[in-house]
């Protein structure tokens, strides 16, 4: 056997071992998934756990099917998804604008520094009740809740990325007599795009928290409302079903943002 064919053979073996490894990973992922739901179902049937509290996959599935067929679940889904998307877009945009203002004026950023630290440390959901009193028990409060939870951390992360842009890029622009605005537009903002997009990924998760908590506090519609309603009437099948839908949609949104990130970072 020549060296060449030997290397070919080894490469084939290597590729095969990679595929095999991947298959095993998938296998165990599916095993975990099935075990979880099967155990849950069995435990519930045999009353190892209280079926009234923990419900069971079959009951959740029945309820979900019923709600999809009569269409009653969709308004709840759209409300929550809409609020979350709006919340996280507002949070990210506002955070980026705030970061730009801080970058613009180093003096202002020094003044505001301790306030940012305090606001960042404060659990944002704690001001939920105040928001609702101030803005009224409407969708606005919930969207604001979804935005406010991510705005400060976005400001801090994006501002840091603005400041960390290689000063030599600015030097290049300044030698052409660029104004501060031109520096921002040509160098600071585009080089921070990857950071902004990666904060989007964090903010999707945060906005779900804000919106669901907002809906807990006040709402007539939405997945958070269904959870709190199910809790009040002791219908935990409804709670589980809503939780299940939230997991699905949160994952979809996260994956979407991840996809956008890949596109943007590749071009950068």
């Amino acid at each position: 056997m020549s060296k060449q064919t030997m290397i070919e053979q080894l490469h084939r073996d290597y590729k095969r071992s990679l595929t095999r490894n991947k298959r095993w990973v998938h296998f165990f992922q599916i095993i975990i998934f099935l075990t979880f739901f099967v155990l849950w179902e069995i435990a519930s049937r045999f009353h190892w756990i209280d079926p009234l509290i923990f419900s069971s996959p079959s009951k959740v599935w029945e309820l979900l099917k019923e709600n999809i067929l009569d269409g009653s679940i969709f308004p709840h889904i759209w409300t929550t998804v809409f609020e979350t998307i709006l919340g996280f877009i507002i949070g990210t945009v506002a955070g980026t604008i705030l970061a730009a203002i801080l970058w613009w004026s180093p003096f202002l950023s020094k003044i505001l520094d301790p306030y940012l630290v305090v606001l960042n440390a404060m659990p944002k959901v704690a001001i939920g009740p105040i928001l609702i009193v101030a803005l009224g028990p409407t969708m606005t409060s919930i969207v604001v809740m979804g935005a406010i939870i991510s705005v400060i951390i976005t400001t801090i992360v994006v501002y840091t990325s603005f400041r960390d842009v290689d000063q030599n890029y600015l030097k290049v622009l300044q030698t052409f007599g660029a104004t501060r605005w031109q520096c921002f537009k040509e160098a600071i903002l585009p080089s921070s795009f990857p950071t902004i997009v990666s904060t989007l990924k964090v903010n999707v998760g945060l906005s779900w928290v804000g919106v669901v908590v907002g809906e807990f506090l006040v709402s007539k519609q939405g997945l958070g409302y269904l959870i709190i309603y199910g809790f009040q009437v002791f219908n935990f099948t409804l709670v589980m079903q809503s939780l299940f839908i939230i997991v699905i949609f949160a994952t979809i949104m996260y994956k979407l943002v991840e996809y956008i990130e890949k596109k943007i970072v590749k071009n950068g």
Binding site: Y169, T175, E186, P190, S191, N267
Partner: peptide
């Protein structure tokens, strides 16, 4: 005056 730096500092996104 034109200024050329140690490294090229071409903007990677342009």
């Amino acid at each position: 005056t034109g200024y050329m730096l140690q490294q090229d500092y071409l903007f990677p996104w342009k």
